[in-house]
């Protein structure tokens, strides 16, 4: 079961937030903004904490990808452009990678190709919402 989705822009600001179930307590929108900013910083630090230096170890260190807690699991997908997709799911949810890829595809289609969307601004695209709900709802 998918709990919620957050999208952060390059600078760490929250551009989209959607809850798909009532498991999480409802926080104010300011709380979510603060959370997003905190996570952006934490992500940057985790990339530097790698036991391997930046030059060795093959691929450069990436920053937090999956975080687990007792009641939920959070997966963070960072695109090549710096946009982060945070997906909160139940711990046993399978195929989160596939879901994140599909969400990224929906973002690239209905947000990026929308001439009325300003880059890095909050997302207010009705088509994106519609397709996202249509994709996520059957999985609940």
């Amino acid at each position: 079961m998918i709990l919620s989705l957050l999208i952060l822009n390059k600078a760490g600001g929250l551009v989209y937030h959607r809850d798909f179930s009532n498991t999480f307590t409802k926080l104010s929108s300011n709380d979510y903004l603060v959370l997003a900013g905190t996570f952006h910083g934490v992500h940057a630090i985790t990339a530097r904490l790698s036991p391997f230096g930046p030059s060795s170890g093959g691929t450069p260190s990436s920053g937090l990808e999956v975080m687990e807690s007792e009641h939920f699991r959070m997966q963070c997908f960072q695109t090549l452009t710096g946009t982060k997709f945070l997906l909160f799911t139940e711990p046993q949810q399978p195929n989160v990678d596939v879901i994140l890829r599909r969400i990224y595809e929906l973002y690239a289609d209905y947000v990026m190709k929308n001439p009325f969307y300003q880059i890095e601004m909050p997302i207010r695209c009705e088509a994106f919402d519609r397709h996202l709900m249509a994709y996520i709802k059957p999985k609940q």
Binding site: N114, C125, E126
Partner: peptide, 14 residues
């Protein structure tokens, strides 16, 4: 297909 008109302009049809 990919256009979502914002609410303030909802008489517009591209």
């Amino acid at each position: 297909t990919y256009i979502s008109v914002p609410k303030e302009m909802n008489q517009l049809n591209c």
